[in-house]
Design a protein around this nucleic acid. Structure first.
Length: 335
DNA sequence: CGATATCACACGTTAATACC
DNA sequence: GGTATTAACGTGTGATATCG
């Protein structure tokens, strides 16, 4: 455990031999281990990396994105011996601010629903509707952050649909909900905050969303709103709403159809790193020529978490699927 | 004149796409 | 999903310019 200045506050090495089956989730082992240090309640903000037995392809920097992976699945990648390292950044007392972040999510959703009531119309899921109902009723926050973020994702999808379906939409442009933070006055900009501990919290909570594996095809860019460090301001819901309501609407940026683009559709492509990613994929390819959809997602998540790819260059399961497709073609061509 | 930097170009690889 | 094709990307090479 480190503080914001990367000064080691707490470090422990504990060797545990755990009897597992192929169906034992990694999360269970991690919780068990964390609990031995009295930190079991912090598992949701713990990053887990795995060291391989051969040290060739993966290192301790290779994070496991989904702790719900079972040991059986990991065995295919890492072999019979699994060395797990748990990472926690920040001070223990700071993690209580998790609730502050939850409050901010709640307020943003509340504001969005009140301003644009239509966006909830197409949400059919009963659970999500109930959450929205709670939010509309200004009832105390009883929903988990995970639930709030799930609704957040749905609302963003609906915003996109609304933007496409009507030009008179009150929503000015296709702007991710969480981009609202960019319009917050400069003195509230968390990026300019000196409190790096708070940023650490945010990072770990983002990890929490990936752990829950609730991703949709488009929600990979969705980040929970960042928590400003001005606690006085953001503990006051009205002050927050005031700022957001007076935020100048973002300019409409009409994307004129580019002649050049229409003639020759620009084809973006990601590039897998030959240093880490391709060897990892090759290793998978030796194990299975056609990974299941779940495995494709797990591979994509793993690669994203083991590298520092920017948000707009994240690897999707579709990228991985195409890689395997091309790889099979390559094999067939050779033979 | 030699060392170095910059640029354009060719070519191979490979992710993405189209078609079946 | 397989195959063929397209297009982005990386790399190597040669021509040219600049500098000491």
């Amino acid at each position: 455990m480190q503080n914001d200045g990367h000064q080691m506050l707490f470090e422990a090495e504990k060797e545990r031999t755990v009897k597992v089956t192929c169906n034992t989730p990694l999360k269970g082992i991690c919780i068990d281990t964390m609990a031995t240090f009295g930190l079991g309640h912090l598992i949701h903000i713990t990053k887990v990396s795995v060291k391989t037995s051969d040290y060739k392809y993966l290192t301790f920097d290779a994070y496991i994105p989904d702790l719900n992976l079972n040991v059986g699945a990991l065995r295919h990648i890492f072999g019979d011996f699994l060395i797990v390292k748990l990472h926690l950044n920040g001070k223990i007392e700071d993690y209580s601010k998790h609730d502050l972040k939850k409050t901010l999510c709640y307020n943003l959703l509340n504001l969005l629903i009140k301003k644009y009531p239509k966006i909830k119309d197409s949400i059919t899921d009963v659970t999500h509707r109930n959450i929205i109902k709670d939010i509309e009723g200004d009832s105390p926050i009883k929903d988990s952050l995970k639930s709030l973020l799930a609704v957040n994702n749905l609302l963003e999808e609906e915003l996109k649909v609304l933007n496409k379906s009507t030009e008179e939409s009150p929503i000015r442009r296709n702007i991710p909900i969480n981009d609202i933070k960019k319009e917050v006055p400069e003195d509230c900009d968390p990026q300019k905050s000196e409190n790096h501990n708070t940023r650490n919290i945010i990072k770990t909570v983002e990890l929490d969303t990936s752990i829950n594996n609730q991703k949709t095809s488009n929600n990979k860019n969705i980040k929970p709103p960042e928590v400003p460090t001005n606690n006085t301001l953001f503990n006051n819901n009205e002050a927050l709403l005031e700022i957001l309501n007076h935020t100048p609407p973002p300019q409409i940026i009409e994307e004129k159809p580019s002649k050049k683009k229409s003639q020759s559709q620009y084809r973006s492509r990601i590039t897998f790193s030959h240093k880490n990613e391709t060897p990892f994929l090759e290793k998978w390819f030796t194990l299975t020529k056609k990974p299941s959809p779940i495995e494709l997602q797990q591979i994509a998540d793993y690669l994203n978490n083991s590298s520092n790819r920017p948000e707009d260059a994240k690897i999707t399961s579709q990228n991985v699927k195409i890689w395997f497709k091309n790889r099979r073609a390559k094999t067939n061509k050779k033979s």
